[in-house]
Design a protein around this nucleic acid. Structure first.
Lengths: 350, 350
DNA sequence: CTGTTAGCGCATTCAC
DNA sequence: GTGAATGCGCTAACAG
């Protein structure tokens, strides 16, 4: 009885709060009060409202609520490439945290094209209360400009000196330093570095650490590469040509590509050449040899970005910066270079 | 001159169409007309409006627009696990296609928990014009119920006989059959199958094909497993214990886990045991040996899901179903079983 | 061509 | 406690 005729094919138009009010024999205001719990409602009407809501399958229209509140309960996430497991994990971290706080996640993939990041972020910012920018490749200038236009902007893996943008970032310098130390202790003296995208802040941070680490003890040979496994695969030959005894890749994703190329070439890792990654993605311990890398909790990065986002005020951001220190994890892809003493450095120092 | 005082920290409240109208000395309707192009506006006012828009940095509020239009220009995507490269790729496919049509993508991750899929989809459907459900693990009954509640529901890798839900799905049967054929031709007679999640439709589709393929020629031994690489890693020992000469994994992601375990155990692939995957994720040709699998264009799957979505009417869905036939790609992880004739079957048959 | 009016669905004032 | 009125920002329908 009473169920509005639900034709087989025709879907009933979404019920409004007015429909519910009529059905329950109360005013829309009362329905709203029951649903939001903003003001007490006596038992009788409350029951009738709840029954009507259930019967009609009523769900408040979020657009209308948002219009009234002035907020959207949504957060935008801009990533360079969803195919990259790293960004997929960060997105997962943000999404899960947001879901927990009853927020929706809007996602945009810029396809590693720095030129589209600005538009993507601006667009998402219209639909969401703010935007999380993952490893933006845009210029510092663009970023500052964007920060002025987007109500709540949070960066992942991008720190900016001039503009106080809230950010959570991996301490790439510490990561690179620990890899260099590890390689040095093994006896490597000449290391080929597979460079990431020049526009990536994280790459520039690595370069800085590389400059500090490289010197008399460790010679770093730079090889242009990129951020994907295909890039790593392509750059592997050039790395080999440097006669370095170890290859340090921009990331695990890149390292996996290089590893595949070494395998094709019959170059044994780590016997003939050592290889390191960065990030410790899931698949890095599924390859053979398992990748020596630096471990970063990517979902946690996303979660922290969310926390920053939800702690940020809509007006001038104070710009707290969270730094996450990665940890070296030594696995099978690094070893003493062929024909070298394990710890010559200690011997010399001592 | 004229730039409203943009205090250093304080962000100016988002301008409304009324602000623009005032600034340009016209009515809000004229501003709207200039912006939407719905009706012609003469040059003078148009220029003034554009100038005001630029000066104020005005952008229409999508919530208000949506409220009026009754649509959101957004699509929801529900995936079991963003960490799984397969789903990340499908999401990328949907997002890119949606972006192209000026639609936003909302994403929800259910963490492989079938129980949360329904709520996630229902929730997203309030914010979006419809939902793409990726490999839903929910029951057929729940799915039918959901289809009645969500305006535009599209499934990926899930076909339902009773309810006509638009869907794009891989022809898992054909894929499994081609793997079985390949394995049979190599001379394998006993194959261990690493099962996917029992709730997954794709798993049931595979089982059907397995029943057809398994028989006198090919014995299939079923091993409970799961959908992640960790599951594959765990199940590898049991697969080995069956004394099968080949292992067929539910997916590449699972196969990669098994491969890693075989490597740990010193079991050589494909010399001692053959291994196959399914889906052909990017990393499958980065491991050693490269994985024999069946190739599926995952981004394309997402793109097609989007097309189905945008072709679907809000009312009763007609339920077109697109089937994608995967292609066998033979790489290094499969070989003739130890001590067997390469093509005994042909010999017997001939 | 342009301005005025109304209303999308909802929550939150006010009166009662 | 409850109902009626107001307005969030915007565009469609009307007048002029």
């Amino acid at each position: 009885m009473g169920r509005a005729q639900t034709g087989t094919g025709a879907r009933p138009p979404r019920a409004t709060i007015i429909d519910v009010a009529r059905e329950a024999g109360v005013s829309p205001a009362t329905v709203s009060r029951v649903l939001t719990g903003s003001k007490p409602v006596s038992a009788g009407p409350e029951q009738r409202v709840r029954a009507a809501v259930a019967r009609l399958g009523y769900r408040p229209n979020p657009a209308a609520q948002g219009l009234l509140r002035g907020t959207t309960s949504a957060v935008g996430v801009v990533v360079p490439d969803l195919s990259n497991p790293y960004f997929a994990e960060v997105l997962k971290g943000v999404t899960n945290a947001a879901q927990h706080a009853d927020f929706r996640t809007l996602v945009a993939d810029t396809g590693e094209k720095a030129g589209t990041e600005r538009d993507a972020a601006l667009e998402l910012s219209r639909w969401a209360d703010g935007v999380v920018l993952c490893s933006p490749r845009m210029s510092q200038w663009e970023l500052s400009e964007l920060a002025a236009a987007v109500p709540r902007l949070v960066c992942v893996n991008r720190l900016s000196r001039d503009t106080p943008i809230p950010a959570v970032a991996v301490d790439f310098g510490a990561g690179v330093a620990s890899i260099c130390r590890h390689l040095g202790e093994l006896g490597h003296r000449r290391v080929a570095y597979l460079r990431g995208p020049g526009r990536a802040w994280s790459e520039r941070a690595r370069q800085q650490a590389l400059r500090a680490a490289g010197g008399a003890d460790l010679e770093i040979v730079q090889i242009p590469c990129g951020s994907s496994s295909v890039d790593g695969h392509r750059a592997a030959d050039a790395a080999l040509a440097t006669r370095a005894t170890a290859v340090m890749a921009f990331s695990d994703y890149v390292a996996l590509g290089a590893l595949a190329r070494f395998d094709e070439l019959g170059v044994s890792v780590p016997d003939e050449i050592s290889l390191t990654g960065f990030d410790d993605i899931a698949l890095s311990c599924l390859v053979s040899p398992r990748l020596t890398t630096v471990t970063v909790n990517k979902q946690d990065l996303g979660r922290r970005a969310w926390e920053l986002f939800s702690a940020t005020e809509d007006d001038g951001a104070t710009g707290p910066v969270v730094t996450v220190t990665p940890e070296l994890v030594i696995r099978g892809s690094t070893a003493v270079p062929a024909g070298a003493d394990p710890l010559p450095r200690t011997a010399v120092d001592g």
